[in-house]
Amino acid sequence: MSDASLSPTVAPRRFLSSLAELQWLGVAVILVFLGVTFIAPLAKVLLLSVTGDDGGATLENFRGLLATSSLRPVLLQTAVTSLEVTLACLVIGYPAAIYLSRLNGWRASLTSVAILFPFLTSSLVRTFVFIVLLGRNGVFNSALEWLGVPGAPFKLLFNQIGVVIGMTYVLLPYMLLSLIGTMRKIDHTLLDAARSLGASRARVFWTVYVPLSLPGVAAGAIITTILGFGYFVTPAMMGGPGERMIAQMVEQRILVMYDLPGAATISVVMLVIVLTTYAAAARWLGLSRLMRPQG
């Protein structure tokens, strides 16, 4: 569009300037809408976190939270869970993505359907089915007992293992989409070149393929970690009683304890952690790459 001025006709230029006006109108609509529905309430949340009982500005909420409450163990638990889930997704997804990224034709279509179908299905549904499958009398434990695995049936529900399994199932499609998107773009002539120069298959894999796939690994890992960090549905449904993850802490304070300043304070801690991670990742990988798990 920038070369419109080179056009011999005047009409496009006038047209474009009228479009520019319209564009500003559009931006104004966006700013008003997001300002009222998102920025202002978010600012109110930030404000709540630094408001004391007497209504004055204070950092007492943060001090209280860090000193006495259960924030620290929950924060640690949340971080550990999201990292465990990310690692599980990566270990399960990476080898599969190597093969799936090479497919063409109907196999590639089948692959994208098999990933997108769970990806688009409600996370409540996906968590519910895992509650059924992982139960004491569920398919998983029955299979283990039938195989004669010692110790079966295991307790896989309402504990940490269950949450990690459930969240891995829910978040694996993000990792797969990110990995496959990057691996598809790897130029296979580079691998052939390395082979013809005498490198072994293992050496080609570790020194050529893995480095070229790292952007996808990084994007997938960051998305999975951040989504896992703020996840609510699966831990709330599979985690059993108590506050296991930080999002549940916020929910409990709003709905059960009716402690809005407390919820706001935890939200701010969460926001700082997540946005710092995003900022660091965006500096490293670029924001647009992070936001497009489809690659």
Binding site: I30, F38, K44, V45, G230, E251, M270, V274
Partner: peptide, 24 residues
């Protein structure tokens, strides 16, 4: 900046978007 603003609701954890909608 507009792009970041538009992508914000995806970067902010859902529970916080829900909290701010509750405030709204």
């Amino acid at each position: 900046m507009l792009e970041v603003l538009m992508l914000m609701p995806m970067m902010v954890p859902t529970v916080i978007v829900a909290f701010s909608t509750y405030v709204l």
